[in-house]
Nucleic acid binder design. Sequence first.
DNA 1: GTCGTGTTCAACCATGTGGTTGACAACGTT
DNA 2: AACGTTGTCAACCACATGGTTGAACACGAC
Lengths: 129, 129
Amino acid sequence: MSADALSSVFRALADPTRRDMVAMLADGDATVTELARPHDLTVQAISKHLKVLEDAGVVSRSRDAQTRPAHLEAEVFDLLTVWLERHRQRLEERYRRLDEVLATLPEDPLPTETSPAAHHPDPDDGARP
Amino acid sequence: MSADALSSVFRALADPTRRDMVAMLADGDATVTELARPHDLTVQAISKHLKVLEDAGVVSRSRDAQTRPAHLEAEVFDLLTVWLERHRQRLEERYRRLDEVLATLPEDPLPTETSPAAHHPDPDDGARP
DNA sequence: GTCGTGTTCAACCATGTGGTTGACAACGTT
DNA sequence: AACGTTGTCAACCACATGGTTGAACACGAC
């Protein structure tokens, strides 16, 4: 209950069994027993896994007689995509700046003002996948 | 070394401190002490977090005198994106099939192939490389 | 060499996680 | 009402995780 939404989602998806359940649910809603069938686990364990996914907002449950089908929520994919794209962009921006620095580097050793300069460019690698 | 790559990556990113470190590293390589500065944690704790990220392949380390700068590996973003997009597509495929079934379901024994009539709200944009 | 800085290793502790078994609630069927 | 199905709750256990402190290692500077 403590962690933020993103942490909950990442943690929920960090388990292979739960990712498997998500894969199943991507093909269609399923009940606990259906989700448990292909896995060599007790129904209680699957129920717990499902609760983790539910608490993280990855799935929602409905009520249908004695079964409670689980439904995959598509929003989480958007949440993760946003996070991913943001950092991907920061990475690209970083390389862009690095290229700029390298372009203006040849001369111009201008010490200039008393800049605090908490961050410094790292002249390490230059390779980029 | 137990879990598969995807599990390791998800687990590594499930911690807000580690995600914070990743955010920092997206702006530029950094040493352990630099990464530790903004967080109210001991350097050892940050070193452990960094090891988790390293074992998951999220970052790599280099050697520069007595420091060992951490470098964010961009490939992991691709790994996560692939997983995300695969399941997003399965979800879309599922809804497409559902619409097909609903289209052929009416009691008309004469299915005119017109009016696909999207029944489901479409989540967001489509494919993006 | 000695010193200081940066980093990691080792031991330890509290809490969380994933699994089990067993009991129980809710619901449809007979 | 009794029964079988479905799902959850509770207690328990082994182990992983995130944090600490303290010692040790690696390296440049003095």
